[in-house]
Design a protein around this nucleic acid. Structure first.
Lengths: 238, 238
DNA sequence: CGTTGGCTTGATACGCCTCAATGCTAGTGG
DNA sequence: CCACTAGCATTGAGGCGTATCAAGCCAACG
């Protein structure tokens, strides 16, 4: 367990709030849940490590994450794997295959998960704005992807890890959790895969930031001690 | 000038056709032009190096590329730049900002360019399937991005260059050009930026492939001599 | 109590970056 | 016509950052 953060530096969340690799593009996160609250929907629970769907399976529905965390990944024919994102409550799974009959990625629960199954055909009829919501969600995903492409292409290993932590902190905060105390739902290997790093490099980056007093590290639990300093390290010439 | 390819290895285009970083996901490319043929549309021409639009500008329209090549790029606050894609005839520019009032990237002509301006509001009324076409285009872009994220995260410098060449060859072929003789519309620096490599590394990779007789290189003109061997190099353990 | 999976740390190797020099081509102006 | 310049491509030498390999630690679990 990590002891709670020293209350020395208070105004850190404000700094965090306007940061994210995707921050400069995005409008506020959509609240799909309230939109569909009245609708009777199929719910589905998945256990840790379980596949929600796999690449190539017939796509019969979209899924709205209600609880838990998921990763989505793509595979090449020769076995190379790449995690394309870590998804959490409010995110939609499966939209990347909206125009084709089968899923285009794997969706795997990191811990446990509960999803709501959206029957797309029915929704289109019932909610005229549904299709527009989908385009919005897709466009947002593109901008997120571009931001990460920018980060992976231009930042060092340590900066990538910082980017990830700050991005995660912001997403947690948007969902009502602390932006300071994070619990990573993925292994070091998965994190490294997403950031295009080896797991040892991720560990070393975290250890280094810890040694400098910027974060607290206890395995999956991360405490962000100095968001301002972290943000400062993201500049090109730092 | 490059002399034409030796006619020794004939059946290469078939191999090429089913390859692309995005190949395993995508359906055939959309023919937007014929769809909108009857419509009276604003056309716009841009010269080399000219911006079609910039990040943050009010988004009043989408653009369909009719001729020429464009690059789209994103910038971070501290000046880091990343080219998110090279676009050509039939591609849509601006869709990544469909849900927000201003453009989310820069679009810059590489040589010259002619685009058709699509008034989105009008199109939605006139073509009921237009919104669905947009979602399809967005989903395809996401899958393309994921494929490149996979490539950049798991391939060596030389493999990335090969991937790019094969992808470009396929896109040219889809548009009725030769899949064997390519003309790069971008500088080595731009190519390196897209592939997360330095321009010298791109040059070295091209020179190396040339020295092995797999391609012909004369500055911007590339001839693909041995697509099969190139494809073979993309395997994980090659 | 052994086994397994995940995390950390160190030593070494290698691929790509960085810096520097050169060549080439096109455009410009004397 | 020929300097002169600017932009782009190529090539080499050396250094750095991350990958790779190896070992040890710890908690969870059968």
């Amino acid at each position: 367990m990590l002891e709670p953060a020293a209350a020395s530096l208070e105004p850190t969340t404000a700094q965090l709030a306007d940061y994210a690799p995707s921050g400069r593009f995005d409008a506020l996160p959509a609240d799909m849940e309230t939109l569909f609250m009245g609708l009777r929907m199929q719910r589905r629970q998945v256990k840790a490590r379980q596949y929600l769907f796999r690449t190539g399976q017939p796509r019969h529905a979209l899924f709205l994450i209600h609880a838990g965390s998921f990763k989505t990944c793509v595979l090449s024919e020769d076995g190379r794997e790449k995690i394309t994102g870590f998804r959490m409550r409010g995110d939609l799974l499966g939209i990347d295959a909206l125009d084709i009959p089968s899923y285009a990625c794997d969706a795997i629960a990191l811990d446990y998960g509960e999803v709501w199954e959206l029957p797309t055909a029915q929704m289109r009829l019932q909610f005229p704005e549904f299709q527009e919501r989908l385009t919005a969600e897709l466009a947002r995903e593109i901008r997120r992807d571009w931001s990460w492409m920018l980060a992976l292409g231009t930042l060092t290993a340590e900066q990538r890890v910082i980017s990830f932590l700050l991005d995660l902190a912001q997403r947690l905060q948007e969902r009502g959790f602390s932006a300071r105390d994070l619990v990573l739902r993925m292994t070091r290997a998965e994190l490294g895969n997403f950031l295009a790093l080896q797991l040892e490099t991720v560990t070393r980056a975290l250890s280094h930031l810890h040694a400098q007093g910027l974060i607290g590290v206890a395995c999956r639990e991360i405490r962000i001690d100095d968001p301002v300093a972290l943000r400062g390290r993201l500049a090109c010439d730092a």
